[in-house]
Design a protein around this nucleic acid. Structure first.
Length: 492
RNA sequence: CGGGAAGUAGCGCAGGCCGGUAGCGCACCUGGUUUGGGACCAGGUGGUCGCAGGUUCGAAUCCUGUCUUCCCGACCA
């Protein structure tokens, strides 16, 4: 049991915070609601970003960068979107400070330097981007326009949590323009598939693809698609969203194109994003009471090697052997760190690297050298095994694959076990409190019922799964007729 | 933004009521012994007690304000 980390049973929230801090993913900062992403956490984000970036490019997208600031007049152009974000916008009103005459050595906002028009710090970039697209799109030959940007955004949250909800966060936002509705819908669905692929095959995070109800939909969208994941405390977490925006932004920003018949039409739009919140999902989906557990495919370091020795002579022999092992692993594309620092003893290192979620640990001492073996410890199951050094690289490669799928299967088994069907309101309430997870129940399709259920239970409709089975039934709350079940859960 | 708790050495905490030389454990430095699951001995370094005011001869301690964090709530794509 870790000395550093609160157990999940004792305090799940504290367990999460402990892991984020103690595994060196992030740190608190002097700015309310904003965190520092530390090198280890950022390396993880870089790996995730690189994979996603390649997936975006493989589906025809290119990167660009748009400004951090959005003039208020542009921001408010698409009314629903603006209203949706209005309450959490940071706004720049002045452009200069000056020495404060009443407080020596202090600065004050210069009242003379008020901006003509306030600048909204982007909570998302639809406005500035669609204002720009207006100048880029004239003809159907300019379409589709498939652009992504990696950026920071600011949402002035009242209550923040490391990675899960911070005032500033990093993300990517794709913004595409299309000639037809069908093509835009297809794009939104395609990117949902990309996100699901990334979550499942790289993050080992099983997700449910679905569509949001009107109440949960992105402000300004016609349809919001999402991937929903389940955390170990039974709460759902939205891990990514993809929006079909219809012609709402095209109309708000007057973006028209000439089609083949030379008719002027509004373009069709999508936007889609995932953020550093995914790191929070990763932590909460896989980790245990000893610390972080990372899927090998995105772990910053896949293998750490710890030498165990008495005296410099042994150390030299081990160094020579490890040098060879490191070369073999690197040649096989495995990222590896050799920790031969003398600051800490092996036991300390073992605990530390487990806390940081490094998938595989190798320990090697004089005894192993004699027998031409090495001790292999896997983080996910904590199994240890002595393995021959002959063919060690391919053994490790296979092991990393096995760990990747084991982590996924474990998360999936938990998730699948926590999707419960019910047709009884009493059971619905009981399940939310006791079993937790997703509850599959009939809903009459109205905002009022959804809102009422949220009031009564704090559960929201996470999504209507794609390809949802159609089945006649009665609404869990009102008893009114329903044609399908939807997934409810308490959520982050 | 409302309610609660916290902030004293890098980390974890004591001290605070009852104002009077700022302490403990871990970490760090030096030396030595060690090294197969968070080593041990000895000797050291390190703090304007979150910040700003106030009360007082004197404030970590009392008062006011403020900042940051955590928990609960409201809010949140």
């Amino acid at each position: 049991m870790s000395k550093e980390i609160t157990s999940r049973e004792q305090d799940y929230s504290q367990w999460y915070n402990d892991i984020v801090i103690k595994a060196n993913l992030a740190d608190y900062s002097a700015v309310r609601g904003c965190m520092v992403i530390k090198p280890y956490g950022f390396a993880l984000w870089e790996n995730m970003r690189d994979v996603l970036d390649r997936m975006f490019k493989d589906t025809g997208h290119v990167n660009a960068y748009f400004p951090l600031f959005v003039p208020k007049s542009l921001f408010e152009a698409e009314e629903k979107n603006a209203e949706g974000f209005a309450k959490e916008c940071a706004v720049v009103t002045h452009y200069r400070l000056k020495a404060d005459p009443d407080h020596k050595g202090k600065l004050m906002v210069d009242p003379e330097a008020k901006l003509e028009e306030e600048l909204v710090v982007r909570p998302t970039s639809e406005a500035i981007i669609w204002n720009t697209y207006k100048g880029w799109i004239q003809s159907y030959r300019d379409l589709p326009l498939l652009i992504n940007q990696w950026a920071n955004v600011v949402r002035w949250e009242m209550r923040t949590r490391l990675f899960l909800r911070t005032a500033e966060f990093l993300w990517q936002e794709g913004h595409t323009a299309h000639a037809t509705k069908d093509e835009a819908v297809a794009e939104a669905k395609l990117m949902l598939e990309v996100y699901a692929d990334f979550a499942e095959n790289w993050m080992a995070l099983p997700v449910i693809k679905g569509v949001k109800t009107a109440a949960e939909r992105f402000a300004g969208a016609e349809d919001t698609y999402c991937i929903e994941a389940l955390m170990q405390d039974g709460k759902a977490l939205q891990a990514g969203t993809s929006h079909f925006l219809g012609q709402n932004f095209a109309k708000a920003f007057d973006v028209k194109f000439s089609d083949k018949e030379n008719k002027l039409e509004y373009v069709w739009a999508t936007s889609w994003g995932v953020s550093t919140r995914l790191i929070g999902a990763l932590v909460m989906a896989h980790s245990d009471d000893d610390g972080l557990i990372l899927p090998p495919k995105i772990a910053p370091i896949q293998v750490v090697i710890v030498p165990i020795f008495k005296g410099e002579e042994q150390k030299a022999l081990i160094d020579a052997k490890v040098k060879d092992i490191v070369a073999q692993l690197k040649a096989s594309g495995v990222s590896v760190k050799y920790d031969d620092s003398d600051n800490n003893r092996p036991g300390w290192k073992f605990a530390q690297y487990e806390l940081q979620g490094i998938p595989v640990r190798l320990a090697i001492g004089a005894r192993d050298l004699e027998n031409n073996v090495i001790e292999v410890a896997r983080r996910d199951t904590k199994e240890k095994k002595s393995v021959s050094l002959d063919g060690i690289a391919s053994y490790i490669k296979n092991l990393l694959d096995d760990i990747q799928s084991n982590i996924y299967n474990k998360a999936k088994a938990y998730r699948d076990d926590h999707i419960t069907k019910t047709d009884s309101w009493d059971e619905f309430v009981k399940l939310l409190d006791e079993k937790t997870g997703f509850i599959s129940a009939h809903w009459d399709g109205t905002d009022e019922t959804e809102e009422k259920i949220k009031e009564l239970t704090k559960a929201t409709i996470r999504c209507i799964p794609v390809n949802n089975e159609q089945e006649d039934g009665k609404c869990i709350l009102t008893g009114k007729p329903s044609v399908q079940r939807v997934l409810f859960a308490r959520a982050y």
